[in-house]
Amino acid sequence: MPTTRLSFKDMCAEFDVTPRTLRYYEYIELLQPERDGRSRFYHAREVARMKLIMRGRKFGFSLEDIRQWLDLYDTTEKNTAQMQAWIELADAQMGELTSRRDQIEEAISELQALRDQVAKGL
């Protein structure tokens, strides 16, 4: 299995993030790249963590929630209380996303009706 080793630039390109974003994730210690002088290199662990960060952002989680998620993946012994807390967090986020979806669907319906009404008047 080839070893993944991405440069800073490659990591930004791979995940379509700005250098500022990647540096911020390092600053808040979500990522810990290997340093060689001024260069940074990201191995498989950091790439996997970045995938989880991006997934968490896509789901709408805060960076602190994502940190807890990453901590869960990093521990060799799975703590039942920690996993239960994560399930509750995920359930709350799913409720939030469902609510947003419902609001968007309602807005789309209203906009469609208004558009159709204006188009009919032409």
Rank of each mutant, 00 (worst) to 15 (best):
M54N: 08
V118T: 13
R38M: 04
T75A: 15
K58A: 12
E26D: 13
R100M: 08
A44K: 05
S39V: 09
Q117C: 04
Q84C: 00
A81Q: 15
R115N: 04
L111S: 06
E106R: 14
M1Q: 10
R23Y: 12
M94K: 10
F41H: 15
Q93G: 02
Q112I: 15
T4D: 00
A85W: 01
R40Y: 07
I53R: 00
Q32N: 11
L30N: 13
E34N: 08
G56Y: 08
Q68D: 13
W69M: 14
R67A: 05
Q112H: 15
M94N: 08
L6A: 03
A119E: 13
E106W: 07
F8P: 04
P19R: 06
A107Y: 03
D74Y: 02
T76C: 06
Q84Y: 01
V47C: 04
A44P: 00
M11V: 01
Y24E: 06
K9E: 14
K120G: 05
M11P: 08
D71P: 08
E88A: 14
R20Q: 13
S62N: 08
E106G: 00
D16C: 10
P19V: 09
E106H: 09
L70C: 02
L22I: 05
Q84V: 06
K78Y: 03
N79Q: 11
I104R: 09
L89W: 04
E105Q: 12
R57V: 04
E106I: 05
M54K: 15
D102K: 07
F59S: 02
S99A: 14
D74V: 00
T3C: 08
T75D: 14
K9D: 15
M1I: 06
G95F: 00
V47T: 13
T98S: 13
Q117Y: 13
A107V: 00
Q82Y: 03
M83V: 15
Y73C: 03
S99P: 00
I108H: 05
I66T: 06
I28M: 12
Y42H: 11
R20K: 14
R35A: 13
M11F: 09
S39M: 11
Q93M: 10
L31F: 10
K51L: 05
E46D: 13
R35P: 04
Y24M: 06
V17Q: 04
L52T: 15
R5G: 01
D16M: 10
E34G: 01
M54D: 01
L111I: 07
T4G: 00
D74W: 01
R23L: 12
R35G: 01
L30W: 04
L114N: 11
L52C: 08
E29P: 00
F59Q: 09
Q93E: 12
A92R: 14
L52V: 15
F59R: 09
F41W: 14
Q82H: 11
A107H: 08
V118F: 06
Q117R: 12
Y73D: 09
E88T: 14
R45M: 05
I87Y: 15
T3F: 06
Q117M: 11
I66K: 01
A48E: 10
Y24C: 03
S39T: 11
Q68G: 10
R38G: 06
Y73W: 10
Q103M: 07
K9I: 13
R45C: 06
M1F: 07
Y25E: 06
W86F: 15
P2S: 12
S99Q: 12
